[in-house]
Computed example of a mutant assay.
Amino acid sequence: MQFASFAGSTEQVSRIGFGAMGLGGTLGTFNEQDLIRSLVHSLDKGVTFIDTARAYGDSERLVGKALKEWKGEKPFLASKIASKYPGGVGWGTAVPVEIAFPKGWLRESTETSLRELGVDTIDLMQLHQYWPQWSKQDYWMEELHRLKEEGKIRYIGVSLPDQRHDIALPLVQSGTVDAIQTVFNIFDPLPLDCLIPFCQDNQVAFIARCVMDEGGLSGFLTEETQFEEGDYRKSFFDYVPRSMYIERVNRLRKFVPQYADSLAELAIKYVLKHPGVTTALVSMHVPQYADQNIAALDKEPLPDDVFEELFRHHRWVRNFYDTKFW
């Protein structure tokens, strides 16, 4: 396992994190006890960073159950405050902060998360949406800082709503947040241009999500793959012709097995190549996936020239929310 300091502190977190969206049913239906066991298994393997959210169905509740079963050292626990008006509001296009996070909502949502997780303190609390226009209002940041002063949360962060990573640059420079979470993978390397170096220079933790592009970069997708109702991927992979997506993934197979044992390992190695990436969130709700993903950290890093080739010639930036909500 590899570790990194969190937000310039002496606190160390694993560079691969347990992305807990899969515990909430959005990536298929699984047995509840198996999901709990998958998290405990990942902790056994050295993962110390868990990322969940109010919007992830039963995820917080299941994380809480897993933490009760876990007998080791307390992991670093991150969650997110959902918009009070879900269902597309604030995704893809900006809305006023008073609509997404009205006064008092941050506290109410945090208190619910604490109960569901069964803990007294959440290490990192993030807004599940953020737009730079919100800097004109300061009440939401004041509410977060009050929660921090009360010991209910320890660090403050935001999760960006889509691929427009540059909207967070002023916030990173403001010194008011400890972490930024956003999309970063082989297809979308844009955070490398500005956001990751900005976070590194300002001692703000950078948390990569969608490292596998919802699993697509693992190479599992075929023309025949079917998704059940309620599975997030049912619409994600088909907002462009599926054949086009598969063809882009197949271009990456030339790097396997010389530089990675699998496409999934290639995706993880790519994201963790830059030292400014604090942790990469990966769905590990199946123990087999957890073992494979964690093992990638013990392999040789990508050579600089391979990383550069991936960066320059395999980017394929798509904003899912362009078609989902507009």
Rank of each mutant, 00 (worst) to 15 (best):
D138C: 05
R318W: 11
R248I: 05
R37P: 00
L310S: 08
E228I: 13
L39T: 06
E300I: 05
P241W: 07
G90T: 06
L221E: 11
L195W: 07
G24T: 02
I99V: 15
I99G: 03
M212E: 04
V271I: 11
I207H: 05
L124H: 06
E300F: 02
L114D: 03
A4D: 13
A55K: 10
E60K: 07
H165D: 15
A295I: 03
D58I: 14
A179Y: 06
P170Y: 10
V204A: 12
D305R: 05
P287E: 09
L281T: 06
S38I: 12
V204P: 08
R164L: 03
G92P: 10
D304L: 12
D322T: 09
L266K: 10
F101H: 13
F237Q: 03
L114R: 04
S14G: 09
Q137M: 10
L302I: 11
P301Q: 06
F76Y: 12
I153W: 11
P303M: 12
V47Q: 02
R154K: 15
A66W: 00
D305E: 13
P170H: 09
D322L: 08
V97T: 01
D231P: 06
Y139V: 12
L190R: 14
F198H: 14
D231W: 07
D123Y: 00
S9W: 06
I268V: 15
K299W: 00
P303G: 11
Y85A: 12
W131N: 00
L62D: 02
F18M: 06
S135W: 05
D166H: 13
D166C: 01
Q163L: 11
T93S: 15
P132M: 05
K148M: 12
Q181P: 09
D193S: 11
C210G: 05
Y239P: 00
R248K: 15
V63D: 04
K74I: 03
Q173V: 04
K299I: 00
V172D: 02
S262F: 04
G151F: 07
C199Q: 03
L297R: 05
W326C: 02
L281N: 04
F320L: 13
Y130C: 02
I99F: 05
S109R: 07
R37Y: 02
K103F: 02
V177M: 13
V183A: 10
D178N: 15
E142H: 13
T323I: 07
V158G: 11
S42D: 02
G46F: 07
A264P: 00
E309M: 08
G92M: 10
A4L: 09
E300D: 14
Y232G: 00
K45I: 00
K254G: 04
Q292H: 04
V183M: 09
D298P: 01
T323C: 01
G88K: 09
M1P: 12
G87V: 06
N319D: 15
R251V: 01
L39G: 07
G24K: 00
K148A: 09
K80L: 11
K45P: 00
L77E: 03
E150H: 09
D178E: 15
